[in-house]
């Protein structure tokens, strides 16, 4: 009996590692080793000499340079983080709104779903960049009808300007929320109908139903899409910080400094992610338990 259990365990061990061994090998080759090397590079001055790389240890020099000498770095870092922190909640709220809209039975639901996922296909890459250059990514109403001057009569300027910049990025927000809409819709489908029926019997209003049933039940999906949105917007190619890093690497060929900058940026991204995980700590505990 004891021997049999042991074999089952060994078998599970061998088979489990058999399945993930490829991934583990990939992890070392394409993640762990590069990650370690990039930390190492960030303490080095790397120079390209006729195709060969020479390294010279400089310690924390790059980090000191980034914070004290480089006048471009800090403003870019701060503005990038600010944009991301504004956009992420907007994307999540908008995606939730769309998912709730599309979840109700209605005529042509399939068509609308197809349209709402369109951004997933188009929204990344050069095509969108070309469109933004052409001004297609800002809603035409705000320019055409001189809405700014009209609104200025009612809203003080200090409030209006940030509001309009938000509206300006609305298109970007809407176009960046395709995947999140999908995640939320899948989540909405997984909530058991019986909960809604029970709430209806107890006479709950739709508002109460949303906050007491839908929202708590969606918590794991909200966590997943928050993480996805953060990672996605921090690593987007049209992100200022990423662009700056790219310039450093390819136009100035300073690989060591680029690595250091990458690590500072990465540290901030991780800080944001940890704050999010901390805020959602009950949810992840729940998910662990359920497993």
């Amino acid at each position: 009996m004891k021997k049999l259990r042991l074999t089952v365990r060994t078998r599970s061990f061998v088979e489990g590692y058999f399945f993930i061994s490829l991934w583990i090998a990939g992890f070392f080759l394409f993640m762990a080793v590069p990650l370690g090397r990039s930390i190492y590079y960030s303490f080095q001055e790397l120079k390209m000499n006729t195709g060969r790389m020479t390294a010279e240890f400089v310690g924390l020099e790059h980090y000191r340079y980034a914070f004290t000498v480089d006048i471009d770095f800090m403003p870019i870092l701060i503005s990038t983080i600010k944009t991301v922190l504004i956009q992420v909640p907007l994307i999540l709220i908008f995606a939730m709104f769309c998912a709730l809209l599309l979840n109700k039975p209605m005529r042509g639901r399939l068509f609308f779903r197809g349209v709402y996922f369109l951004p997933v296909i188009v929204a990344s890459g050069n095509s969108l960049k070309r469109l933004t250059e052409q001004g297609a990514a800002t809603l035409p109403i705000f320019k055409q009808y001189d809405l700014y001057t009209i609104m200025l009569n009612y809203i003080p300027e200090q409030l209006l300007t940030p509001l309009l910049t938000m509206m300006d990025s609305l298109m970007i927000v809407m176009w960046g929320s395709g995947v999140q809409i999908i995640i939320f819709m899948a989540g909405l489908q997984s909530i058991p109908v019986s909960l809604y029926e029970a709430a209806k019997c107890d006479g709950a209003t739709p508002w109460e139903v949303f906050w007491k049933i839908t929202f708590p039940m969606m918590m794991p999906m909200i966590l997943v899409s928050t993480l996805f949105t953060i990672v996605d917007s921090f690593t987007k190619v049209d992100n200022q910080m990423i662009k700056y890093n790219w310039t450093l690497m390819f136009n100035k060929l300073s690989f060591g400094y680029a690595s250091a900058i990458g690590w500072i940026y990465f540290a901030f991204v991780f800080l944001v992610i940890f704050i999010v995980l901390f805020m959602f700590r009950n949810t992840s505990a729940l998910a662990q338990e359920r497993r």
């Binding site: 599970s12 061990f13 088979e15 489990g16 590692y17 399945f19 993930i20 991934w23 583990i24 992890f27 993640m31 080793v33 590069p34 990650l35 090397r37 990039s38 590079y41 993480l227 990672v231 921090f234 690593t235 990423i242 890093n245 690497m249 690989f255 680029a258 690595s259 990458g262 690590w263 940026y265 990465f266 991204v269 991780f270 992610i273």
Partner: peptide, 28 residues
């Protein structure tokens, strides 16, 4: 489907891979 020794370590490394921005390892 499998529960083997070291499972927790690997799954957390999987999550880490998800979170690491590819830009930070692009140079190496």
């Amino acid at each position: 489907r499998y529960n083997f020794p070291g499972y927790r370590i690997w799954i957390s490394l999987l999550l880490l891979t998800f979170l690491v921005p590819p830009q930070s390892i692009i140079v190496p």
